[in-house]
Amino acid sequence: MSEFLLILLGTALVNNVVLVKFLGLCPFMGVSGKLDTALGMGLATTFVLTLASVLSWLLETLVLAPLDIQFMRILSFILVIAAVVQFTEMVVRKTSPMLYQLLGIFLPLITTNCAVLGVALLNVQEGNSFMQSLFYGMGSALGFTLVMVLFAGMRERLALNNVPALFAGAPIAFIAAGLLSLAFMGFSGLPVK
């Protein structure tokens, strides 16, 4: 059990997908303007990421490896991810039209969120077991959500600032993200996977 907890903590904090691995920056910058939206995006991505890492693990171990067609990995993983995203989109659209509208183009773009594919591939690379993959995916996704929400809070505060014209908008957001990444370096060296 503590192994899974460590995986969860490690992927969420120490090897945070966004701030340490620099994956999934597109939604990180794109939908972090508002807290509610960021939370919605985080949860949607959590769902996709967890499901996709499990499904891709199954695909890898049950299909690709036995048939010895691992060269098809990226292609088939993307197929799986795209399907999961489509599914998520339907669910979100049905359950929360407002969130659907707010997430806009970024919802289908989860497909191309490199964090999703990245985590699925890392799972294979590190030879994770089924449960490890599950927690690896979930931890990464939770880390993504955590950072999204933190950053959205920061940006809501930034929106009330008198940032110099030169830095207003995206530049200050990038600076803030960089500084947040600096802060996350404090977690480095924690003995987790």
């Binding site: 299909v63 292609l75 599914f87």
Partner: peptide, 19 residues
């Protein structure tokens, strides 16, 4: 590979259709 991909696509398409 081709067969597998086709099967995979078919399965996922079916699932999405139902969804």
């Amino acid at each position: 590979a081709i067969v597998m991909l086709a099967l995979l696509g078919f399965a996922l398409g079916l699932a999405l259709g139902v969804a």
